[in-house]
Design a protein around this nucleic acid. Structure first.
Length: 684
RNA sequence: GGCGAGAUAGCUCAGCCGGUUAGAGCGCAGCACUCAUAAUGCUGAGGCCGAGGGUUCGAGUCCCUCUCUCGCUACCA
């Protein structure tokens, strides 16, 4: 069987954390390794997703070019893939020329076969920079919460989705100038035309997908698929290959999944250079005549299950994905992982703090993998699983057998005598374990599979306890030969069945038992290691992790805001361009006394405030319901802008804006004014 | 606001198309053992299966309502 396996492309605007590993990389790697072990023909690809507005924005924030930004993250990602033994056949990047070419071909294919529609809309244009501004590049005041740094696509303070036209006093993020509306033409992928085909593809042909995946898709199909813009006015990304579309690039969601294909092409090209039997076209079979499996997180479901399949089908030369085993999310110590708050376990830092322990993290993340619901990573659990499972069960079993053989036979594997039922049982357990693990993995049940592998070590421990070779050596030394021979086969079995999960440890076990073959079928053979084999000195597989080590990690979390990873930490947001004092003075800031506060009906985020300014009472609506209860605001003084145009929010006219302070975690608090200040007092 | 997923022992989680006394690992208690990184093995105590209704001979498992968590999406102009 042939398999095309992909892991979600990590976005190159921030470092990688345990969520990336547990969500997509690790299951993809385990699955790919397993498939190779059973002899399947596997192509496993991943790479950095380097385009998009978020990269451009992040680069701008840090005062570097997008190219410089991705050139910093891509090598780091590549290194981490190596260090965590993620066995991709290629780790690619979407800024490569080959990818641009592939994505452009994709676009042209759609364009030339009439599968795109063009639509002209009014969009903000920056006359000084001479270009159309992407939504993200228009900043202004949020009409909902009054945040004056809202982006044209979203206000990050109140979470509202916006269009640039909604912003109050919009300005260009590039030059600070007031942009003008001009018509611009964009290409859309008319997904509505795919409604029926997608319903068939998902609801009929893939009813076996996971409930979370199917549920998401149903939800989308129910709402009805709508055309989606696939181009943007921007200079960072894959250029739209048409003369009439200068200054436009492909929208990142369109080009990113094509990265899987570009990566496959690049793999074939590179291989063809070194192997005479290989052709640069070898990638094609994986995208036409194979089983295609995409490993992703739940936030990517719709793209991989609806949009990308439509793209592949529309192109005409590709097969649509067969499985999309999306994982849920991983939390950290009971709270969400947050890149912006620096609340994460960064992979590069983990390796600094726990050198050589990539297998341990692989083990723990597989054991708690969020397969059906969000899961929680805690350092105490990490320690417990390492100490109680890897050290005490797996490592200890291997070590017991090896040291006994060393002690009694100088490391030479003894010949077994007549097998008793217990011996047969442990010998058979190896093959059964491999079979059970295989079945679980084929159903994408990684936690079960790993538990089955550990069970083999548990069985081994039990076998030793029941047969007491350390006791029998004095009374029945012949019997001990059989017991240790049999126990060693279970150890060797671990060297095979652990390979998909813990590649380094499995390889070490194989070395310690003098076994070369890793093929899955090896586990079905008896013996795996023949009598007379000379074994090397035993070594420990895992070591205990002390309390101090995990306590240090826990202590690091709350303190970590803004201090970790100097090289990668985003710089604090730069100040806005200078403004003339006269211009600043135009803003009328006043103390207002909040007489009454209440929730705006039907709106999650809005509070309606009755505010006394001395000269008059006004109604002001503010998007802080998530951060303040009405009671907290009542009868308090706060700072307001009072000379903004009136704005209707959820039907309520708001005449002014409450000023707020943003916390490190993005939460908002009202900017209080002294209680003794009279209503209407000027602020300057 | 709409939609989706989840809510099961102290903790982390399994429970497939409804069926006899609801499972695992950790943690806890007791016993056994001492080859092993004080590691292992055995036994045991722990559950009104989120709340409330309903369908059924029978529901953790199906239906309805509600609450909480996470995700997708929207609107209030």
């Amino acid at each position: 069987m042939r398999y095309m396996i992909t892991a979600a492309l990590p976005y190159a605007n921030g470092p990688l954390h345990i969520g990336h590993l547990a969500g997509a990389f690790l299951p993809a790697d385990i699955y790919a390794r397993y498939r190779r072990l059973v002899g399947d023909d596997v192509l496993f690809v991943c790479g950095s997703d380097e385009h998009g507005v978020a990269v451009a924005i992040q680069a701008r924030k840090e005062g570097v070019t997008p190219r410089q930004l991705v050139d910093r993250y891509h090598p780091l990602f590549e290194r981490l893939f190596r260090e965590f033994d993620l066995s991709t056949d290629i780790y690619y990047r979407t800024s490569e020329a080959l990818h641009h070419q592939t994505a452009q071909e994709f676009f042209l294919r759609f364009y030339e076969t009439g599968q795109l529609i063009e639509q002209t809309t009014e969009q903000f244009y920056d006359p000084e920079a001479e270009l159309f501004l992407p939504d993200r590049y228009v900043v202004g005041t949020c009409p909902h919460c009054g945040n004056d740094r809202a982006y044209g696509d979203q206000c990050e303070k109140c979470g509202s989705s916006l269009t640039p036209q909604e912003l109050i006093s919009p300005r260009s993020a590039l030059t600070g100038k007031v942009p003008e509306l001009r018509p611009t033409t964009h290409f859309f992928l008319p997904l509505d035309r795919w409604q029926e085909r997608m319903e068939k593809y998902i609801l009929e042909e893939h009813r076996d997908w996971k409930p979370n995946v199917l549920g998401q898709c149903r939800s989308w199909l129910q709402q009805g698929l709508a055309p989606r813009a696939i181009t943007r006015d921007m200079d960072w990304g894959v250029a739209v290959p048409l003369d009439s579309a200068r200054g436009k690039v492909l929208y990142v969601w369109f080009d990113a999944p094509i990265g899987y294909i570009s990566a496959s092409k690049a793999w074939a090209q590179r291989r063809a250079q070194t192997r005479p039997d290989a052709s640069p076209d070898d990638w094609k079979a994986y995208w036409t005549d194979s089983t295609i499996v995409h490993f992703i997180g739940k936030d990517n479901i719709v793209f991989h299950c609806v949009v990308f399949p439509a793209m592949l089908m529309g192109h005409g030369e590709f097969r649509a994905p067969d499985y999309v085993p999306a994982n849920e999310f991983l939390n950290l110590e009971g709270e969400k992982i947050s890149t912006s708050r620096n609340r994460a376990v960064w992979l590069h830092e983990y390796l600094q703090d726990f050198p050589g322990k990539s297998d341990v993290l692989r083990y723990v993340l597989t054991a708690i993998m969020p397969e059906t619901k969000d899961a929680d990573f805690s350092w105490k659990d990490f320690q417990a699983r390492n100490n109680n499972e890897l050290v005490a069960i797996v490592g200890n079993f291997v070590h017991r057998v090896l040291t006994l053989i060393q002690k009694y036979y100088g490391g030479r594997v003894p010949s077994p005598g007549v097998l008793e039922p217990g011996d047969e049982k442990i010998l058979a357990a190896v093959g059964e374990s491999a079979r059970g693990i295989g079945e679980a993995l084929e159903k994408f049940r990684f936690k079960d599979a790993l538990a089955a592998a550990v069970q083999l070590a548990r069985d081994g421990n039990k076998y030793l306890t029941e047969n007491e070779p350390w006791h029998r050596i004095k009374t029945d030394p012949e019997r001990v030969k059989t017991v240790l021979f049999s126990g060693l086969q279970a150890v060797a079995g671990l060297g095979v069945v652990l390979e998909p999960f813990l590649p380094q440890s499995a390889a070490k076990i194989r070395r310690l038992v003098g076994m070369e073959s890793v093929a899955w079928a090896t586990a079905q053979q008896t013996p795996l290691v023949g009598a007379g084999t000379q074994l090397p000195e035993p070594e420990l597989l895992f070591e205990k992790i002390e309390d101090a080590a995990v306590e240090a990690q826990i202590a690091k979390l709350p303190l970590a805001v803004g201090v970790a990873s100097e090289a990668l930490a985003p710089a604090a947001e730069a100040p806005k361009p200078d403004v003339a004092f006269e211009q600043f003075a135009l803003t009328d800031l006043r103390v207002g006394r909040i007489l009454k506060a209440e929730r705006v009906k039907g709106a999650d985020k809005l509070l309606r405030l009755e505010v006394d300014f001395g000269f008059e009472r006004r109604t002001i609506v503010s998007g802080i319901a998530a951060y303040h209860t009405p009671e907290e605001l009542t009868n308090k003084n706060a700072a307001f802008v009072v000379n903004l145009p009136a704005r209707k929010l959820r039907g309520v006219e708001s005449r002014g804006m409450l000023l707020t302070v943003e916390g490190a975690d993005g939460t908002l608090r009202a900017l209080w004014a002294p209680d003794e200040a009279p209503p209407g007092a000027k602020i300057a």
